[in-house]
Simulated scan of single mutants.
Amino acid sequence: MRLAADRGSATIWVLAVGVVIVLVGAFGAALGAARMARQQARVAADFGALAGAGHALDGEAAACGMAGELARANGARLAACRVDGLDVLVSTQVTVSPLPWLTRTVTATARAGPVRG
């Protein structure tokens, strides 16, 4: 009679293991999405600062305009831009939703200008 009491327990165990695997996979995907957003923000800030530095002599409006164009082309939003002499300081933001109920904004900052020796 003891065998009859254990019927169906394997189904519950398989279901529990399946749920754990799905949760671990979702966590891994969320972590990967967050890391990709961070890298995307960094690339956009770097390229924006380099493009802006190339136009630093044309004034802050031209330099920051070019930095904004490159930030948008790289999937980011220009959060801040400042010209300091011939250097351009750019901050970009990327919004990421790694999970449906979780939205975060990643910010990166880069500086570019001429080499000083």
Results as ranks from 00 to 15, higher is better:
residue 99 L to H: 05
residue 7 R to V: 12
residue 103 T to Q: 15
residue 31 L to N: 09
residue 52 G to M: 00
residue 69 E to V: 12
residue 91 S to V: 09
residue 97 S to W: 01
residue 103 T to C: 08
residue 108 A to Q: 08
residue 36 M to A: 15
residue 96 V to D: 01
residue 44 A to K: 01
residue 61 A to Q: 13
residue 66 M to S: 11
residue 8 G to E: 00
residue 69 E to D: 14
residue 116 R to T: 14
residue 16 A to K: 05
residue 48 G to K: 03
residue 92 T to H: 08
residue 39 Q to R: 14
residue 20 V to Q: 06
residue 55 H to M: 12
residue 14 V to F: 11
residue 7 R to H: 03
residue 64 C to N: 03
residue 57 L to C: 02
residue 24 V to E: 02
residue 34 A to Q: 12
residue 75 G to D: 04
residue 87 D to A: 09
residue 106 V to N: 01
residue 64 C to G: 10
residue 6 D to L: 13
residue 74 N to H: 14
residue 97 S to V: 05
residue 33 A to D: 02
residue 93 Q to D: 15
residue 51 A to D: 04
residue 15 L to M: 13
residue 57 L to G: 07
residue 65 G to F: 10
residue 29 A to Q: 08
residue 60 E to S: 15
residue 108 A to R: 10
residue 33 A to T: 04
residue 31 L to H: 10
residue 109 T to N: 06
residue 94 V to A: 05
residue 46 D to A: 13
residue 87 D to N: 12
residue 5 A to W: 02
residue 70 L to G: 07
residue 9 S to Y: 04
residue 36 M to P: 06
residue 13 W to S: 12
residue 36 M to Y: 07
residue 80 A to D: 14
residue 78 L to I: 05
residue 40 Q to E: 12
residue 101 W to L: 11
residue 57 L to R: 14
residue 19 V to G: 13
residue 90 V to Y: 02
residue 114 P to Y: 10
residue 39 Q to N: 14
residue 73 A to S: 10
residue 115 V to E: 15
residue 34 A to C: 13
residue 7 R to K: 06
residue 29 A to F: 01
residue 3 L to A: 13
residue 15 L to Q: 08
residue 3 L to R: 14
residue 19 V to P: 10
residue 117 G to T: 08
residue 65 G to D: 03
residue 109 T to C: 03
residue 25 G to Y: 02
residue 64 C to I: 03
residue 26 A to K: 03
residue 109 T to W: 10
residue 49 A to V: 04
residue 82 R to V: 12
residue 47 F to L: 15
residue 12 I to R: 05
residue 30 A to D: 08
residue 114 P to C: 10
residue 21 I to V: 15
residue 18 G to Y: 00
residue 74 N to C: 01
residue 13 W to K: 04
residue 51 A to G: 15
residue 62 A to P: 09
residue 75 G to P: 05
residue 68 G to Q: 06
residue 58 D to V: 07
residue 7 R to G: 01
residue 65 G to V: 03
residue 17 V to D: 07
residue 110 A to E: 02
residue 102 L to E: 02
residue 87 D to C: 03
residue 29 A to S: 13
residue 77 R to D: 10
residue 91 S to Y: 12
residue 37 A to Q: 03
residue 102 L to M: 08
residue 66 M to A: 15
residue 20 V to N: 05
residue 59 G to K: 07
residue 98 P to A: 05
residue 54 G to K: 12
